[in-house]
Design a protein around this nucleic acid. Structure first.
Lengths: 240, 240
DNA sequence: CAGTCTTTTTGGTTGTACCAAAATCGGGAA
DNA sequence: TTCCCGATTTTGGTACAACCAAAAAGACTG
């Protein structure tokens, strides 16, 4: 176990190149947002064929360390937590084709947010509460405009993810939003429905403001579970 | 916004092949654990050059949909949540080179586990409590053997991640274990230290068994924060 | 039937070549 | 001079042919 159980036959040239370029990117030798050197330059630098170089580039692209639109020079992207979640998302999407996958993901979201509202109620700073209050106001102001309401809805929940001041949660929020979006966007919307959601948000906010974690958690649970029930119908077949 | 904002110049042949192979893998046409067809077969099937085929294979490999050891036939891997977390992990590792990254990750773990022990205390079933009890016993039995203690330690925490019965958390536990392992393994160990950790586990377990979520959460916080303080010293420089 | 040796298959890599689109350059028009 | 447009160069996308070494498969022998 403790032995280096990875013979790790790193005999693949492209892997070496990937590693080296990764180093350069995180170290800033290849600055963020700058274009990657041309493939023909890289093959000279690494003494490898273009095939190998392109393989390395493809790997970096899949990792999210470079943005490569089809006919353009790849752009270097210094990795952050968004990058991490994005690369996970590409595979995750395959698991969201059936309802079970969506349910698992949504359940995890509810679980996280329950903890987040507790955290907000117990340790949220004054600025956090104010940010929440502002997001709530924006949410209310958008009730008539379902398109805008959707965005302020996401933003309200987003504030919760910022309270721990941990970039992982910020990224996670964006992840949830983008992964669930395709399923959520087909949910029928209306000012009445928006109003219901706004009121739920208000309940959550008030519980947090009043420093009542149990109440906050319950309000959030009710809100998200109701939303789930609401979208259930939009799925094709049955579900658990 | 609502317009298909993705011109998505799908001019890349390999992308099409990737998609098609992905379909085959999730649909089971290419069974899990079976070897991928030889590259030369694939180039005939898709009417593309080997260059393109290999690019597609590289992409699938990076996504975790096939396991490709250097000189062997790639093995098809039907994606699950482990796959998702693994592919995230490859990028995440780059962010764990500095202490801030490790701290962020560890903080998130503490946050999750605090919620998990609450959940266990409030809604854990009898079997869950029993599993926890068994893991605790194994943990105690391994106090003298630091190597084995480490494993039972991870296993004890792992039980917590299984209580929500959501495969995402199971995968997340494996993720945390493997991502943090390189930093944790350099922590000095001793039977005395193991005993301290075991007692902390026992406190957590008792609080859960007694259905006291607040107590469970606090016991877990103490345990994990103490562990963090303990490994702080093993890092090179200062930290926040 | 087991174990060993030979042949075939297959992945890893290189090199070259061609095309089309992007980036660059340069000259002419305003 | 400045700006715009067209010609030229650069660069990414794809294809084909070939070679090597290791793996897999098959044949052969004890």
């Amino acid at each position: 176990m403790s032995a280096p159980s990875r013979p790790e036959s790193s005999a693949r040239t492209s892997d070496r190149i990937v590693q080296e370029l990764e180093r350069d990117i995180v170290a800033g030798v290849l600055p963020d947002r700058s274009p990657l050197p041309p493939e023909r330059d890289l093959m000279q630098r690494f003494g490898a064929s273009r095939t190998v170089i392109r393989e390395a580039i493809a790997t970096l692209s899949n990792r999210g360390l470079i943005e490569s639109r089809p006919r353009f020079r790849p752009i270097v992207r210094k990795p952050d937590y968004e990058t991490v979640l994005n690369s996970a998302g590409e595979v995750l999407r395959l698991l969201l084709r059936d309802v079970a996958g969506v349910r698992n993901l949504y359940q995890s979201r509810v679980f996280i947010e329950r903890a987040l509202v507790r955290e907000a109620a117990l340790h949220g700073r004054k600025e956090d509460i104010e940010a929440l209050s502002a997001a709530l106001a924006a949410n209310e102001a958008a009730i008539a405009d379902s398109q805008r309401f959707y965005r302020t809805d996401i933003a309200f929940h987003g504030v919760l993810y910022q309270i721990p001041h941990n970039p992982i949660f910020t990224a996670l929020h964006h992840g949830y939003a983008s992964w669930l979006a395709p399923h959520w966007e087909r949910m029928p919307r209306s000012p009445e429905r928006n109003r219901v959601n706004f009121l739920a948000h208000r309940d959550i906010f008030r519980a947090i403001r009043d420093r009542d974690p149990d109440q906050a958690e319950e309000a959030l649970s009710n809100h998200l579970n109701a939303a789930w029930e609401y979208v259930r119908g939009t799925f094709g077949t049955e579900m658990g």
